[in-house]
Design a protein around this nucleic acid. Structure first.
Lengths: 251, 251
DNA sequence: ATGGTATATTGGTCTATACCATTGAAGCCC
DNA sequence: GGGCTTCAATGGTATAGACCAATATACCAT
C-alpha cells in the first residue's frame, strides 16, 4: 500500500495525528488504492512505517472501523470492508456523493430559495430568535433524471450572507457552506419516519398522493456545536432503504 | 458517586476491565444513582479510585460517550447526558425495554409460532441451507393496549430446540435466547424503509390499508458473529420515529 | 489424506507517563 | 463593576512497553 504523508512531529500541531492517518487511509480506500478485501499491514508494521506509536495507529483504525470501512479480526488482520451500499447510513455525507458512488447520475432542481423570518419551530431548532431571518430552500433531487427526493432546508441567514448567489443545482449544500463560509458540518442529529405523500410532494416526485415516503429530519451542527442547518427531506419509499449497523456496547 | 466493583486483577480475566467499568457506570446511570447533568469525578481521580489506569478508564468512558450516555468536555468535565427519548436508535435493545423506559405499558400477542423449512431468502440471511428448519413467529406488540407494531421473526431451529415452550407474550425474544440458550445478540445490521400497510397488517394494527408503515429489517448476530435472528418488523408510521446521531469521522 | 498439536502472527487489553488544548474561576487592574 | 490576565483543573493526544486471546500456518502422527 501507498505511504501516507503526515504533518509535523508530535507536538503543537493543528490536526491530531490519528485523524491525519485515518483520513489518509480513507483517501486510499476511496481512491481504490486500497480495494475491498485487501489486508492492511499488521499494526506493528504499519505503525512503524508511519513513524507513529501503535496505539496512535489503532485510534485511527478504530475510527475507520466504527465507520464500517475496515474490519479487524484478532489473529487474522485488518481488512478493507466490502463496499456495502448501505454503509452510508451511519456516516454523514451528502446525497450527491452517495449517488455518484453507486454509479448513478445525480441531478437537482432548485424550486425555491428565499429569505424569510423563521417560524417558531424552525427558530427553535436553529437556536435563533423567532422571526430572525432564515434562508428557506427547496430542491428536487434526481437520479438518472427521475425525481427521487424532495429536500427542504433552513439556514440561519446571519451565518450565510448572500447565499442566493450560489448555484445549488450543481453544488452540494455542505460544499458551499464549507467552501464559501467556512462552516463544516461535523455532527448531525436526524430522525426517520414513514409518512404519506401530500398532493404537492406526489406531484413533484411523480408518484401517487398517499404513497409511502421516508421523512428524514436533520439538524446539523458545525465544528463549534452551533446548529447551521435544519432539513426535512422526503425520499420515495419504494426506492430508498436506510441501513445501520448496531453494536451492543463494547464499541 | 457509588463505587464500581471490578473482578480480578489485570490478567487472565474473562471480561475486559473497561467493559466492566462501562457496565458499572451504565448501571448507575440507569438506576438513577447518576442523574442526568451530574458531573463525574475527573478522569485522573476516578481512575485512581477504581484502581485502573487512566487510559483504561477512558476506554470505558468513550464507549458510553458513543452510546450517547455521557458528554465529555475538555477543560470542564464529563457529564451524564440528558435522557433524550430518541437516544435508543443507535443502541441495540428490545422493544419492551424501550417502551417501559418511557413509562408506557407494553404488551404482546403471539399470532404464530411454528417450525418450517426456510425459504431461500431467509436461509440466505441466516446462513443455513435452504429448507433447513427455522422457527417462524409473529407477534403483535401493544402499547397501552393499542396495537403498534407487528413483528415477524425467523430463527435457525438447530440453535433453539424446543423453542415453542417459551411464552413470548411475557418475555423478550432476546431474553429467552440468552437465558435459555446462551446466545447473546451482540451486533445487528438493520434497515429502515417506508412501506404501505397491506390488508393483513392494517387489520391487525387497526389502521387503514395503505397507511404508511416503517419496515425495519434486522439481521442479528451472536457473540461469535453467527446470524441467529432475521426479523421484519413493521411500526405504525404515525406513532414511531427513529432517531440517530451522526458524526463526521473523528469518532 | 486426515486430524491434532505446537508455534508464530495478529489484533485486544492494560499500564505508565508526558505534554497539549480548552475551560473556567480566581485575582487583578482600572 | 467591568474587563483583563493568570493559572489550575480537565479532557485530549501521543509514546513506550508488556502480556492476553484468537487465528493461521506448519508440522507431525496416524
Amino acid at each position: 500500500m501507498a505511504a501516507i504523508k503526515l504533518l509535523l512531529g508530535h507536538q503543537t500541531m493543528a490536526i491530531p495525528l490519528y485523524i491525519q492517518i485515518a483520513e489518509g487511509l480513507l483517501e486510499q480506500i476511496e481512491s481504490g488504492a486500497l480495494a475491498p478485501g485487501d489486508r492492511l499491514p499488521p499494526e506493528r508494521e504499519l505503525s512503524e512505517s508511519l513513524g507513529v506509536n501503535r496505539m496512535t495507529l489503532r485510534q485511527a483504525l478504530r475510527a475507520l472501523e466504527t465507520q464500517g470501512l475496515l474490519i479487524r479480526q484478532q489473529g487474522s488482520g485488518t481488512y478493507v470492508a466490502e463496499p456495502k451500499i448501505e454503509r452510508e447510513a451511519g456516516r454523514l455525507f451528502p446525497f450527491t456523493e452517495g449517488i455518484q458512488r453507486r454509479g448513478h447520475l445525480p441531478g437537482a432542481k432548485v424550486i425555491k430559495l428565499e429569505q424569510q423570518p423563521a417560524e417558531i419551530s424552525v427558530a427553535n431548532k436553529l437556536q435563533t430568535s423567532v422571526s430572525a431571518p432564515v434562508y428557506r430552500g427547496q430542491r428536487l433531487r434526481f437520479i438518472n433524471q427521475q425525481p427521487m427526493m424532495l429536500e427542504k432546508f433552513f439556514l440561519p441567514a446571519h451565518c450565510f450572507p448572500g447565499f442566493e448567489q450560489y448555484n445549488l443545482e450543481n453544488r452540494s449544500l455542505y460544499e458551499v457552506m464549507e467552501t464559501e463560509y467556512g462552516f463544516v458540518v461535523s455532527r448531525a442529529r436526524q430522525s426517520l419516519e414513514a409518512v404519506s405523500a401530500t398532493e404537492y410532494e406526489a406531484e413533484l416526485l411523480k408518484i401517487k398522493a398517499g404513497a409511502p415516503l421516508m421523512l428524514e429530519q436533520r439538524l446539523a451542527f458545525d465544528q463549534d456545536g452551533q446548529p447551521i442547518e435544519y432539513a426535512k427531506d422526503v425520499y420515495r419509499g419504494d426506492r430508498f432503504r436506510f441501513v445501520t449497523e448496531l453494536a451492543a456496547l463494547e464499541l
